[in-house]
Simulated assay, not measured.
Amino acid sequence: MALLALPASAQEAEAPDEGASLIEEGARMLFEGLMQQTEPALEELRQMAEKFGPQLRGFAEEMGPALAEILKDVEDLSVYEAPEQLPNGDIIIRRKEPLPKDAPEGPLEDAPMPEGEIEI
């Protein structure tokens, strides 16, 4: 009787290994399918990076210091609307809610005002 039980227990021992290999095979197939489906989008993204990369790098090198200087005076970007370009090409960024009258003066309010009229 003990000999008859040995093959059954050997089969049971193989089942988890076979199950694990089936899971591994399924995961491999899933990832291969995902790679095939995303390959065209990744190739398009790579081409865009090649095309626009130098322009974006130049923009960052030129505008980076100016943007860093502006951001020193801005504590929280969430209080501002999205930038808006005026017909004359100027770009303005409005506050969502105006500052209260009793708000402490910040660095921009301390700046000297130019004399004469300012075109807005």
Rank of each mutant, 00 (worst) to 15 (best):
P87W: 04
E12M: 07
R95C: 01
L67T: 02
P104G: 13
E84V: 02
L45G: 09
R57M: 02
G106S: 07
Q36W: 14
D73Y: 05
S21E: 15
D17N: 03
A27I: 14
Q55C: 04
L67D: 00
P83V: 03
I23A: 15
L6D: 03
Q11P: 00
F52P: 01
K96H: 05
I118S: 05
S78M: 02
D110L: 12
Q36F: 11
E84P: 00
A41T: 12
P7L: 10
R95I: 02
P87F: 06
M35N: 14
E24H: 15
F59Q: 08
L71P: 00
D110F: 09
P83A: 07
K101N: 11
E69L: 01
R95E: 09
E75C: 01
R95G: 02
A10L: 11
L30N: 14
Q36V: 11
L34C: 12
P104F: 03
P112Q: 09
A13P: 01
A10N: 09
E12Y: 02
P54I: 15
G116P: 05
S21H: 09
L3F: 03
I70V: 15
Y80G: 01
L3I: 07
P54Q: 10
L67E: 03
A13L: 12
E44P: 05
L99I: 01
D90H: 07
I93Q: 10
K72D: 08
L34H: 09
I91D: 06
R28Q: 13
L22R: 15
N88H: 09
E18K: 13
M113Q: 14
L22N: 08
G106N: 14
E115N: 11
A103Q: 08
S9M: 08
F59H: 06
P40C: 06
G26E: 10
A103K: 03
G26L: 12
A10Y: 03
E12L: 12
K72W: 01
S78Q: 05
D76I: 05
P54C: 12
F31Q: 13
G19C: 07
G33A: 15
N88I: 02
I93L: 07
A111Y: 03
Y80A: 07
I23Y: 13
P7V: 08
L6N: 01
N88F: 06
P112A: 04
E97Y: 10
E39V: 00
P107Y: 00
F59R: 11
G106I: 05
D17I: 11
E97C: 00
E75W: 00
P40V: 04
R46K: 11
R28Y: 08
M1A: 11
E24K: 12
A27E: 09
D76V: 05
M48L: 12
Q47Y: 01
T38C: 12
A49D: 12
S78Y: 00
I91L: 15
D17S: 11
A82L: 13
L42D: 14
L4Q: 09
E12I: 04
F31P: 03
P16E: 04
F31K: 06
L3W: 02
M113W: 05
Q85N: 00
E75T: 07
Q37G: 11
L56G: 04
D110I: 02
A111K: 15
M1D: 08
D17E: 03
V79Y: 09
D73M: 10
V74L: 14
E81I: 02
L3K: 07
V74Y: 06
